[in-house]
Design a protein around this nucleic acid. Structure first.
Lengths: 128, 128, 128, 128
DNA sequence: GTGGTCTAGACCACC
DNA sequence: GTGGTCTAGACCACA
């Protein structure tokens, strides 16, 4: 899986890292139970500090995306949630902001939905 | 229009302010040509510094959401662009992350689309 | 002569006004000895305060572009300077900044000179 | 690189700072990838507030002149755009005003072009 | 150690 | 009256 960081972005490196791993999990590039690189290795590959990778992993663990096993390192968590639940209010809030911006930019609902469909098509994450 | 800031949030105050005003414009709570509160007034109401409001206004101006007229203060910009159908790549990226998270949280596409519809229903912003 | 003001510009109205009149003089839209509109009339036409027009006229007078006669109002000044003098250091400084920006934007010297020629072609101001 | 601010100028300090840095980049005094002083350092050297320097840096970043890397501070951006031959309309407008003023001051085209050449001779910025 | 954010309070230009 | 600028000093997140 390819990870690219923008060093000059306003979003912190650890957050960019976290975001890309989350997307990787959702798109199936990282499968459940799959082992993530070690902190040191990933930091080396990306040319960043181990602390930064550490922070990203800790965040992902705290959010429940991965599990960290002292013996085997970090692994993608096996899905446990049932389907069709509601999104967290946090996500709904972010979605509202995005839709507001899109609306003002002149994107109508049907176009927006089409784009969502395209993105969903790439998500192959399967629930239990 | 009611604006509420979370002082303990990681998103800066001026950005929260900017976001809420953008949503206000999209939902029609703030209509085109409508005058925004003065920086002093808003700063007072929210109990924050004028420079913070100033920064939010400057950002909104730079992004083209509002217009600052030396004579009458800040106003919501009248829409000029025709429906441009495609969202900015930046928005698409954010949307991908949101959908990834929703997917892992167990929200399926139809549920997601339903939520989008609900949000779109509140957007009454009309293009020229 | 058509004057258009941007109410939301960062350059003050009186300065925009002054700039457009200076350009009008240089392009010959306003000829030497030609009478400018009265302060009140111009203010009315543009929908701005008379003080603003007043300030622009005062500035133009101070800079030597116009003369203000109490009986006949404001007139374009008859040129007195000999040709081939050097530009004011102020102008040279501004020019340096513009060329710096153009260079970084990827405009090379020949292209720049061509644009200058185009602009000069429109200047029909004749010296004594 | 020497930076001198005029405290009594009508152009804001942060803009003077921005202008001088832009010129520095174009003249090669600041080379691509070169690190700019830290905001604190520069503020100290110039005897102004850190926020003022901050604002200048933010502006330069927004305009694409510099890049701010969380790890190493601000750096001159490596040129990426190929020679685009045409200047922005904004620059063309400024140029028109300058030429208008020069014309009225009695500077003819050949003299003006000569001055441009002199200035261009100092610009050593090279595109990719 | 870096930039980013925020405050309280001040002054100024513009209209 | 408005927004814009600047200061001095503080705290925080990031790396």
């Amino acid at each position: 899986m390819v990870i690219t960081l923008q060093l000059d972005s306003s979003t912190p490196l650890y957050e960019q890292l976290r975001n890309q791993i989350v997307i990787g999990i959702a798109t199936g590039e990282l499968k459940p139970e799959e082992k993530l690189p070690t902190v040191r290795q990933l930091a080396d590959d990306l040319g960043i500090n181990t602390m930064t990778v550490n922070k990203a992993y800790a965040l992902l663990k705290q959010e429940g995306y991965i599990v960290i096993d002292r013996r085997h390192g970090a692994k993608v968590r096996i899905p446990t949630l049932p389907a069709s639940s509601d999104p967290s209010p946090q996500i709904e809030e972010q979605l509202q902001l995005i839709i507001a911006q899109a609306t003002i930019q002149g994107v109508d609902q049907s176009r927006f939905q089409a784009i969502c469909s395209q993105i969903f098509a790439k998500m192959v994450y399967r629930l239990p």
